[in-house]
Amino acid sequence: MSDQLSIKEVRYQSMVLIKSWPDSAQKTDAILAAFLGIDALPVVGDFISQNDIYFAVISPGHFMMFSNNELLCSEISKLFSADIASVVDISHSRCGISLNGKNSDNLLNKGIAINLTDDDLPGMSVLQSSIHSIGIIMFKLQHDDYLIFSYSSFFDSFYAWVIDSAEEYGYALT
């Protein structure tokens, strides 16, 4: 990863939550796997990036998907009847940053008490936590390379926290 810490605002056109029930779990998994063109869904805590779609398994039966395809949400809604899974459009609900480069881990560890080393948190892992009382969902692509989303109303505060925490390392806004 690069030596320079960089921060960039990101927003995806579509972001959606899919939640199934234990009795519809298998069916839901199959529908999602087929949609994504993969054999099996990743395990809890992992995410994949497939055809510009990010797909994460947050907990059993609880999935998050996002991409820049603004039709993604309506496409997904059509796949599930109400008794199989709930689909919640959260496209506007989250705003995020891409954080990468040297000291990304150290910056994040100012606010979260989670071991971010590759041994404890391998690449392509997703986790939810909070920084400075702001709920976040974090996607670790690889060491020192993250996508982090907060709820939209918190974003200004979250961004200010990130910038302030980056001051001692020096950073670039990209």
Binding site: G45, I58, S130
Partner: peptide, 11 residues
């Protein structure tokens, strides 16, 4: 069970 060891303040 899903997220691993976390501080009590997250709960």
């Amino acid at each position: 069970p899903h997220c691993g060891p976390r501080e009590a303040s997250e709960y």
